[in-house]
Simulated scan of single mutants.
Amino acid sequence: MISSDPVADYTPTSERHMPVYETGTDTSLANVDHMIRYAYVAPFVVGKRVLDISCGTGYGTQFIAQQGALEVVGVDVDQSAVNFASKFHAHPNATFIQSDAHYVRQLEDASFDVIVSFETIEHLPNPRKFVVELRRLLKPDGQLFLSCPNDYRVAPWISEFHLHKFRFPEFRELVLSTFGEAVFLGQHYSVSSHIVKPISPALKGVRFESYQNPLPKDFFEREYLENLSAIENADGYLAIVNVDESQLQNQTSISQSAFQFLMRLLTETLPQSDQVNQLNQELQQTRLELDRVNQLAAAAQTRIQAMESSKFWKLRATWFQLKRKLGLPTQE
């Protein structure tokens, strides 16, 4: 049963991606990360029965349905997320159900042509049991698209919600030990610059249109690649089962808004960074001055000790004692 107010009942976390038109905040950076994976599977879902397991708020499930899937089932453990998805990402070919991803009792064996599960496995208590469940639900000749972040990379957004971290060899072994064969791709975040022809006003963008209406073939005729790491150091991994490697292409996700978002962050952060640097310099100077004062104090103490132990100082002390005994005035 769908809640009468899914928005009021649903409290998103940083792990639940929600597009900007629902949150009112800039999610362009996350869109670049999340939507490229759904865009990648678009050619493989046409006319197919598809499972989107750990679908979150359902934006990806809806997107798959929009690409021509015969049926899409979105599964998530959070009932409030399922309610939200059912209201805001509804589609005639999409349904949403609540279930633990380790075992979806509502679904029959070998019942899906395509299964997608993006950035799920790292959240689960038992990743191997989850992968075995995917094998149960997938048809013998079905296709699986399974992604996982590389939490060993240097990044500010390593999630507190991740229960497991996978290096590429560990992720690869987990998939191959269950499915036998797979093709592995790396997802890399990068900074890019594009020179493009103006787009006709008739093609002006709507929500996710760049994925619903792919760029023309050879849209980028020439590319310049400065550097791209090996898959072991990618920002994420994508395992693909039962798809011939010849069918797989490199793909990019483009967002000028995401770049502008990063520039705004830098613009706001750099002045603060300058202030912190100035304070650190002042602190370092204060420490140097304190060290100099301590050195002077130590030197003075050493001189006093040397004077007190000298013959003159001892004779002086004896002289003053004698004057006191004789009742003579003393000025020490």
Rank of each mutant, 00 (worst) to 15 (best):
V7K: 13
T13S: 00
E22P: 04
V32D: 04
I36T: 04
A42D: 11
K48F: 10
R49S: 08
D52W: 07
S54V: 03
Q62T: 05
Q66G: 11
A69E: 03
L70D: 04
V72R: 02
N83Q: 05
F84V: 09
K87D: 05
F88R: 01
A94F: 00
A101L: 02
Q106G: 10
E108P: 09
D109N: 07
V114W: 03
V114C: 09
K129N: 07
F130H: 06
R136W: 00
L137W: 05
D141L: 12
C148G: 03
R153F: 13
V154S: 13
V154P: 03
P156Q: 07
S159G: 06
S159Q: 05
F161C: 12
F161R: 08
L163K: 14
H164C: 09
R172F: 14
E173D: 15
L176E: 00
K197W: 15
P198G: 05
L203D: 09
L203T: 11
G205P: 00
F208R: 01
S210G: 02
R222G: 09
N233Y: 05
G236A: 08
V241P: 06
V241R: 10
N242Q: 00
V243A: 10
D244M: 13
E245Q: 03
Q256F: 06
M263T: 05
T269D: 04
V276D: 08
Q284P: 09
R287F: 14
E289H: 00
L290D: 11
N294D: 15
Q295G: 13
I304T: 12
Q305I: 00
E308M: 03
S309F: 13
K314I: 13
K314V: 15
L315W: 15
A317I: 15
Q321E: 04
L322F: 14
L328S: 02
Q331P: 12
E332I: 09
